[in-house]
Design a binder for these strands. Structure first.
Lengths: 331, 331
DNA sequence: TTGAAAGCGCTAACAA
DNA sequence: TTGTTAGCGCTTTCAA
């Protein structure tokens, strides 16, 4: 059997309550007593049982993190931001991959709640009514990270994807292009839908229509970018500028274009999205929309700590600034 | 107050024990009773409290995962393997980043143990005596993933890094090179040290010496690969073939070489390590050592489940096969 | 400044 | 097949 608080109390000739106070840094303990208790804790190698503590105090200092896919660079960077701030506030994270699968997402929320997490950071895409119901009835606070809930009923941290999409497209237009294309994922996540809307808005300003010929829907992978080029350049109206919904797609797009014997940016300009480390790891280096990924995670976690501590929150739907970095894939 | 097992028992006119049996799928319950209990569980919206369960049963169905940096592609892929198998066996993971910082690693092990995890998957580099002491005195099983403990005293899952390093170098040598260089991290992790040894061994066979002129120690980043080229090609004896300890380094090396106006592989051949997705995202595509990263995580977690279930384990230090994929960065 | 004692919500003998 | 009951290890009043 393990050493318990009771063993320490007996050895140190004090009550469990006193040991508990020492362990929790309660100031109402005489220095001499504290020292004595600390000494026997050391001697016995006592390690507090967080589960028992959690049951008694109803706080586990653990938060749930539901993430589409940790092996995706975008999300792993986000997760890092979450964990760093969690750590700073003495929380640990239970991390689970959802693969954007709705049933799994719902199941994970419930598992997390069963495990009595003190809060949840949620990342996903399509939010169904079922999601919203879970969010709203949750006994602990939930914060959405890089996940849009149109009615802003749930606390969240995002950037303005539509505006960002508009700006990225506008940059291309300002460089003189009229044949633009947008390459995105198949089932557009809400964020990608917003980027899409920004794209459409910018095109409308120059009276260009948007249809199947200039929007390619694949997945969010490098391979998909490659395929997009095949498809897009197989048409009579070939694009001269491409806006990709992620850096990884952009990378595929650039290589696809190069494989066609064309030059980026001379023949075709390309702009990505996310500014993952990938952006610098390609030639030409990638112009892209900087989404402060790490910060989104960090701010989401910080926001969650406020809710968990029942602190006053002035703004529950945080929009972080984005910017566009021009590198060599655009002129 | 939340709905407890007691509330369900009262409403359903059965004892807590019966409710517990139903919840845990114990077959010793009359179907009619089960149905009745299930119904009131539904009605009351009862959600079992895993913390209370953990305290009573001494099992939390949670495992700790200590990882250097989840935002690093290599580790995030590993983590994905771990989580998938964990999920399959109904475990959740508490994930924490250590940044390879020894104090933090030790502290994390203790935090995990306080939280009563049922086991730990550990990834790190240098293992000190203090690490080993913690591993050996841990009340729950610990498995090392992609982490070498030279005496094999702790269960682990790895590939044969030395052999892999040897083979990678040999490939370069067989292509006719005598001026080879190895680019690695600063404080060599045990795995990188093994790669290094393989490099040395291969060079010894062609009677080439290894010194500062052909080993560059930076960190494991893209930038470091760039710097390595600067340094390596600033010497009179310039290498004609480079073995990089990771794909990300290799990417930097290739771009550094290209920036010098040289061609890969015509002027300099490059081979990487890990076969992360990056390997395909570069031109020329990267020849690299395939380390089954996802599998290492998956197998480590699987091994851990065996220990947690006190199953018989035939081999506690698993060596997974590696291979070398030749792409376009070598001839 | 300290201690006594009542839970926290559940599991797991054991008994019936 | 079901119920009773004693913990699991800790926090938290409340009283002293």
């Amino acid at each position: 059997m393990n050493v318990t608080i009771y063993d320490v109390a007996r050895e140190a000739n004090v009550s469990m309550a006193t040991v508990s106070r020492v362990v929790n840094g309660n100031p109402n303990v005489k220095p001499a007593t504290r020292k004595k208790v600390l000494k026997t804790i050391e001697e016995l190698g006592y390690r507090p049982n967080a589960v028992a503590r959690g049951l008694a105090s109803k706080r586990t200092t653990t938060v749930g993190v539901i993430i589409p896919d940790i092996s995706n660079m975008f999300f792993s960077e986000l997760a890092r931001g979450i964990d760093d701030i969690a750590n700073m506030y003495k929380y640990n994270i239970i991390l689970s991959n959802s693969d954007q699968n709705i049933d799994k997402e719902i199941k994970l929320i419930n598992t997390m709640l069963e495990k009595q997490v003190d809060g949840i950071v949620y990342m996903g895409s399509r939010l169904t009514d079922e999601h919203l119901k879970e969010f709203k009835t949750s006994p602990v606070p939930i914060v959405l990270a890089a996940t849009i809930e149109p009615t802003n009923a749930i606390p969240s941290v995002n950037i303005d994807y539509e505006e960002a999409g508009y700006e990225a497209t506008k940059l291309l237009i300002d460089n003189g292009h009229t044949k633009l294309a947008f390459v995105t994922g198949l089932d557009e996540t809400t964020a990608n839908k917003a980027k899409h809307q920004g794209f459409v808005q910018a095109l409308e300003e120059i009276e260009q229509t948007v249809d199947q010929t200039n929007v390619f829907r694949g997945d969010l992978s490098y391979q998909s970018g490659l395929k997009a080029v095949e498809s897009l350049f197989d048409q009579t109206e070939k694009p001269t500028a491409i806006f990709a919904a992620s850096d990884e797609i952009a990378l595929g797009v650039i290589h696809g274009i190069q494989d066609l014997g064309l030059n980026v940016p001379a023949d075709v300009e390309v702009i990505g999205f996310d500014n993952t480390r990938l952006a610098m790891m390609i030639r030409p280096t990638l112009s892209t929309v900087v989404q402060p990924v790490y910060d989104i995670g960090a701010v989401a976690m910080r926001l969650l700590t406020k809710y968990m501590n029942k602190e006053e929150v002035e703004e529950s739907n945080v929009i972080l600034p984005h910017q566009i970095i021009k590198r060599s894939s655009t002129k």
